[in-house]
Every structure is written in C-alpha cells, then in structure tokens.
C-alpha cells in the first residue's frame, strides 16, 4: 500500500513538473491580461531546441537555457501581435501553437532517431524549483508592489495607466516570462522526462497547462495541486486498468482535475478571471 502510494507520488511529480512550469507562465501572462494559447507551440520549440543543443554541446542545462530563450522569443512574437498590433489574442495564440509544431517538424527532420547521452534526471532541481517558483510567484503576485502592478494591468489597464503604470511594458514582460517558462517546460520533456526528439512529442501538454492555469483560478499555489493531481491521475489511469475499464479511465485525469479545481475555487475576490483578460489595451481609450 505504502509502495503504491509512493510510486504514485513519484509519477505525479514527474508528469506534473512540466505542466506546472508552463502553467505558471500562463498564469502570469493572463494575470497581465494577455491570453496566450500558444503554449503548445512554445513548449515544442523548447523541446526541440533543448534536445538539439544538449546533443550538440553535451550539456542538458545549456539546452534548457536555450529552450527558455527560444520560448521567450516565440512569446515575444505573440506579445507584438497581441499587445502592439492589438490583434485577436486567441487567433494569434493558436497561430503560435501551429507555428511551433510546424517549424519544429521541419527543423526536426533527421533528429528523430538520435539517442541523447547528456540527460537530466527526471526528478531534479527543476522539480523542486518548480514548487519554490510557484510559492515565490504567488508571493510576488499577492504581496508585492510588482504583483499589484501586474494584476492591475490585467484587471483594469486604464486605471493602471492613469496611475503611471506602463501597461504595454508589463504585458510584454509577463507574456515573455510565460514563454520562457513554457520553453523550459518543453525542454524538460526532451532532455529529462523522455530524452529524445520526436515530432509532436509534447502531445497536448501545452493545452493541459492552459487548463490548469484557468482552473487553478490564476493562482500559482493552486497550480501546484492542479499539476501534480493531474500527474497522479494520469499515471493511475494506466495503473488502475486491471480494475476499471480503460475506456473510462482515459477521461479521468482531465475530468477529475477540472472538477477538483473548480470545486475548490471559492467566490473570494481575486479568484475570478482578470477583468481585462483577452482585451487589447489602447492608451487613452476606455
């Protein structure tokens, strides 16, 4: 029994780590008022570049750093389209997701059959850091001036603007930050979780990260639960197949995580979606 539990906890952490990193990034972008549906694209760009760099340099940490940078650059594209050009954020994000998948499909030709020698362990500093980061990001968001500035850019950009906050800069920074975390999350998949490159290898993890950000009520602390609960259920959906029909178990991780997060979402102030989420901001207009 203890063994069963321990086993599940270990798998929960391994599956949940990249989801938590990417989810935290999305929470910050959305807190500042920008929806970025391109997480899947940024993650797969991170996965490919982390793999290619780790394979070339022999250092997976350098791979992760580059993955973060590439994720940030991809997010910059989205920020430019969404914040500066004020285009539809949903369309731009979807385009980024497709762009990432497509570009890595082309760049990744010939890399798919290559084993990676320089890998990171599945449970490493990156795992512990993800929990620390969640706590730290929660603290910043709710207990510092910077947090107020970020939240105000997402709740009421006009008011923030009137108080001298540069909404554009805040939104740019948060979106890029989100991209960096998504890139690292993707890199984790290709150098630690399953060290190799295969086209489309993120397999929808980016979409789950977005769901976790939303159903965690844009709260970094609750994202920890969301990510690891999903991880545990995902593992159990295979473990429990001897007792429960696998067809039923398939939906369990998704349905149950959403249910739990939704049930624990209180009606307290600040738990709802940021007021100006998804709305482009034009300085001087309401």
């Amino acid at each position: 029994m203890i063994e069963y539990l321990l086993d599940t906890v270990v798998r929960a952490i391994a599956v949940g780590t990249p989801l938590l990193w990417a989810g935290l990034g999305e929470i910050y972008a959305e807190r500042a008022g920008v929806v970025n549906l391109g997480v899947e694209g940024m993650m797969i760009l991170g996965a490919f570049f982390a793999f290619a760099v780790a394979h070339t340099t022999g250092n997976p940490v350098v791979g992760l750093v580059v993955a973060g940078g590439v994720g940030g650059i991809a997010a910059l594209l989205h920020a430019f389209v969404a914040v500066t050009l004020r285009a539809n954020q949903y369309v731009s994000g979807l385009a980024l997701a497709m762009f990432g998948i497509g570009l890595t499909g082309v760049l990744g030709r010939g890399w798919e059959g290559i084993p990676l020698l320089a890998t990171l362990p599945e449970i490493s500093a990156l795992t512990y850091l993800s929990v620390l980061a969640a706590a730290g990001l929660w603290f910043v968001l709710y207990h510092t001036r910077a947090g107020i500035v970020i939240r105000s850019a997402g709740e009421s950009p006009a008011a923030a603007d009137a108080l001298g906050v540069n909404v554009y800069v805040i939104r740019y920074l948060c979106v890029i930050f989100g991209g960096v975390l998504a890139g690292v999350a993707g890199g984790f998949l290709s150098v630690a979780y399953r060290p190799s490159w295969t086209e489309g290898m993120t397999g929808g993890a980016g979409w789950i990260a977005i769901a976790i950000a939303i159903f965690a009520g844009w709260n970094p602390l609750k994202a920890i639960w969301g990510a690891f609960l999903f991880g545990a259920l995902y593992y159990l959906s295979f473990r429990l197949q001897t007792w429960v029909p696998p067809e039923l178990l398939r939906m369990m991780p998704f349905a149950f995580t959403i249910l739990v997060l939704a049930a624990t979402a209180g009606s307290r102030r600040g738990e709802g979606a940021p007021e100006a989420l998804g709305l482009p901001y034009v300085s001087g207009q309401r």
Binding site: V15, R194, G203, F238, R239, Q241
Partner: peptide
C-alpha cells in the same frame, strides 16, 4: 510518449 511512459511505469510497479 507520455502515455507510453506512464503505462510502462504502471506495469513495472505490478
């Protein structure tokens, strides 16, 4: 890949 990996882990645990 993720599903294959967790299914493997589940089998090994058995």
């Amino acid at each position: 890949p993720a599903a294959a990996k967790e299914a493997t882990a589940a089998l090994v645990a058995e």
